[in-house]
Design a protein around this nucleic acid. Structure first.
Lengths: 228, 228
DNA sequence: TCAAAAGTGTTCACCGTACACCCATGG
DNA sequence: CCATGGGTGTACGGTGAACACTTTTGA
């Protein structure tokens, strides 16, 4: 049974659910396939895993290929292994989700893939089991938004409270109370108020904030630890 | 790039973290390898994935092979893909965790594997990255115990409140208050009190409970749902 | 002067936690 | 009759949710 030689090898892929935020809406980045099967349909960005790279490396490579960006925030979700999920050949795929600032990424997209940002609620039908992957990623993103701070990866360096709140509202898909939201965020103690104002959004202008990266990372890492 | 023929295939495996409970302690089931590499060392139960089975099916097959039990509670955790995690050949492994009643399983274990239950805090060193897998599984089990009811899979059909509390204490690794625990469990409304008593544990005897399977499953499934 | 968004505190209800005594029975 | 574990209820503090008015300034 445990004879390595006689075992069957399988195609292994990664697929990336790329979430972005454009100051208003939560979006996902999809590509239009220009190869068979399913040419012309929308799909997650993905690729096969090579023998000399880990899954994380494969996902990073694929993401970099599409966006030109390195070191994006990236997290493994789960493996999909239905026998016929890819009609061409048995392929097991591991899904990853990435978080990026959609405004930054917009200009740098690799034109080869006909990639386009889609509003999360207006996404087209996707090939294979990609819709399942997106739903699962969305559910994970929500859980994360409820248990840890989120936003550092999705927002520009400086942002207004309202933008951060809008992001949370987009992820959780519900309206939040302005005052309660601010109190909650302040209690986390991860923001630094700058003395600059964003004058585009209103006459009065609203203060810009930055994340305190160190405190932010500490908060994110809390509740992960476990020693055997 | 997306040419299926030219892609490299990879060995794919599953490894199972099998948690059990023996009325007192939380345990994991480990096997003693009698094949190379690492013959004689302790390891998770695992196996290679075949071309015609899903990961879930592979994990079920492997578990059944070891325990003789079918339809165990089983959940996918994550994929491990470090290049040299298995020194013989590049192998990507997906970890699963299973929950079973250690007392039931004890007698039925397949003798071929020299399997043995180990107290979770007294487990031996494991091969490869199996210790990481166990730590990750433990952390997931704790999170689950805090967000959803747990125990149905780990306890015999009828059990005392104290046994359920002991299980939670073992998973969370902390003492819980008896009264608060009972209140919390009752608030979930998933238990049925039978009129039988367990007379082994004390002179007075303690009532046995059963899970209301329907209500239990409903509670477990809550907070998973998400519609796109 | 008015429209549009920014900013700011308090009250209340509920939940989670701490905590101690009596009960039933077998030996 | 006594030792052992089983069973039960209340009081308090803290957290999360509801809620409205004033400020600024460009047009």
């Amino acid at each position: 049974m445990e004879n390595y030689q006689s075992q069957e090898k399988i195609l292994l892929a990664v697929d990336c659910i790329i979430f972005g935020f454009d100051k208003k809406n939560l979006k996902i980045l999809l590509i239009k396939r220009d190869f068979e099967p399913e040419r012309g349909r929308w799909s997650l960005m993905g690729g096969f895993v090579k023998k000399d790279e880990t899954l994380d490396e494969a996902a990073n490579r694929v993401l970099h290929h599409l966006t030109g960006l390195h070191n994006l925030y990236l997290e493994q979700l789960r493996a999909y292994s239905e026998i016929d999920r890819d009609p061409v050949e048995r392929t097991v795929s591991v899904s990853y989700y990435a978080l990026i600032d959609a405004n930054v990424a917009e200009g740098e997209l690799n034109q080869d893939f006909s990639a386009k940002w889609h509003n999360i609620h207006e996404a087209p039908n996707l090939i294979f089991d990609h819709a399942d992957m997106v739903a699962n990623a969305m559910s994970t993103l929500r859980r994360r938004a409820l248990t840890k701070p989120i936003g550092f990866e999705l927002l520009p360096e400086k942002f207004t409270m309202r933008q951060l709140q809008t992001l949370y509202e987009a992820i959780l898909d519900e309206k939040l109370d302005k005052r309660n939201f601010i109190n909650k965020i302040n209690a986390l103690d991860i923001l630094v108020k700058t003395d600059e104002k964003d004058m585009k959004s209103s006459r009065k202008g609203s203060f810009l904030y930055r994340f305190d990266q160190e405190k932010y990372n500490k908060k994110v890492q809390e509740c992960f630890a476990f020693k055997l």
